[in-house]
C-alpha cells in the first residue's frame, strides 16, 4: 500500500465516522514524510488508526467487543457496461448499529444494498451475513391487488409465522408509523404513496429479522411519519438489529452511528 493509498483510506474511514479528515490526514502525512517510514509500520492499518483517532477525539472508551458483524461487505465492486458504480466498497455492521449509506444519484447506493441482500451479484467482493434479513426496496415490493393484512400473512408465512400472529404484528408496527385508519382493508394500489411505503417498511421488519436493509424507505412520508420512522430505526437498533439505511438526506447523518459515503471520491 503506497503512502497516498493509505492516506486516502484513512480519509475515507474518518469521513465514514463523521470526522473531518483534513487535519488528521495532513498531520499523518507530515509525520510520514518526516520519518520516511511506511505508513503500515508507523500507524498500522488505516481502519484501526481511524478508530484510535475517533476515540481520542471523542474521548470514548475503547469499543466493547460486539462480536462478529451481522453484515460484512468486503471489497465490493460493480460495473454496468463501461460505467463503474462501486469500487472496493467495505462495510461492517454490528448488532445494535445503524449505518447511513449516502451518495449522489447514480452513486450505486441501491445497487450496493441489493448486493448486500444477495439480489444482485457484484463483479468483485463478498458479503457475509449472520442472521435473517429484512429488505425494504426503494419502489415496488408490494402487490397492488392485495390488502395490507394479506401482505402481512404472505410475508409472515415465509418466516414461519401463523396467520393471526402475522396480522397482529403487522398492524402493531403499522400503528407505530401513524398508519391512517381504515386502510387495512384497502388493496395496496388504492393506498397513497406514503402509506404504501409504510407498508413496505412494516413488511421489512415483520418476523423480527436480524439485519434490516432499507432503501430510502421514507419516500412520501410526512414530517411526523418521518420522525416515527427514525424512532422505529432506533428501537430496532436498541433491540440489537443491524440496520443499513440508504438516504440522500444529509441532515440525517447525525441519526446514524456510521456513515458510508458512496460518492466516487470516497470509494477506493
Amino acid at each position: 500500500m503506497t503512502v497516498e493509498d493509505w492516506l486516502a483510506a484513512l480519509a475515507a474511514e474518518l469521513h465514514r465516522r463523521r470526522i473531518d479528515p483534513a487535519e488528521v490526514v495532513a498531520e499523518a502525512a507530515a509525520h510520514l514524510r518526516d520519518s520516511g517510514r511506511p505508513p503500515m509500520e508507523v500507524f498500522g492499518p488505516p481502519t484501526a488508526y481511524a478508530v484510535t483517532v475517533v476515540d481520542s477525539i471523542r474521548g470514548t472508551a475503547p469499543p466493547r467487543d460486539r462480536g462478529a458483524p451481522r453484515l460484512q461487505a468486503s471489497n465490493i465492486s460493480k460495473r454496468y457496461g463501461r460505467t463503474t458504480v462501486l469500487t472496493g466498497v467495505n462495510l461492517s455492521v454490528h448488532a445494535g448499529e445503524a449505518v447511513a449509506v449516502i451518495g449522489g444519484n447514480g452513486s450505486g447506493k441501491s445497487t450496493f444494498l441489493r448486493i448486500c441482500a444477495g439480489l444482485d451479484s457484484p463483479d468483485e467482493g463478498q458479503v457475509r451475513l449472520r442472521g435473517t434479513i429484512g429488505y425494504c426496496p426503494q419502489d415496488g415490493g408490494t402487490a397492488g391487488f392485495l390488502t395490507p393484512d394479506e401482505h402481512f400473512v404472505l410475508v409472515g408465512a415465509g418466516r414461519g409465522i401463523r396467520r393471526t400472529a402475522s396480522i397482529a404484528q403487522g398492524r402493531t408496527a403499522a400503528a407505530a408509523l401513524d398508519w391512517p385508519r381504515g386502510h387495512a382493508a384497502k388493496p395496496a394500489r388504492h393506498l397513497s404513496g406514503g402509506t404504501r411505503q409504510k407498508l413496505n417498511l412494516v413488511l421489512a421488519g415483520l418476523g423480527d429479522p436480524d439485519v434490516l436493509l432499507l432503501d430510502e424507505p421514507y419516500q412520501g412520508f410526512d414530517n411526523g411519519s418521518y420522525l416515527d420512522f427514525w424512532q422505529q430505526v432506533w428501537q430496532w437498533r436498541d433491540a440489537g438489529k443491524a440496520i443499513v439505511v440508504v438516504t440522500h438526506r444529509l441532515a440525517e447523518l447525525d441519526r446514524a452511528d456510521t456513515v458510508l459515503d458512496l460518492s466516487p471520491r470516497n470509494q477506493r
Binding site: A117, G118, L119, T132, I133, G134, Y135, P137, D139, G140, G141, T142, A143, G144, F145, L154, V155, G158, R159, G160, L203, L206, G207
Partner: peptide
Amino acid sequence: MGARTMDPRLRLSGY
C-alpha cells in the same frame, strides 16, 4: 409479471 417486484422480497422472507 406482477410478481416480479414482490418475489425477491418473498425469497428473502424464507420462500
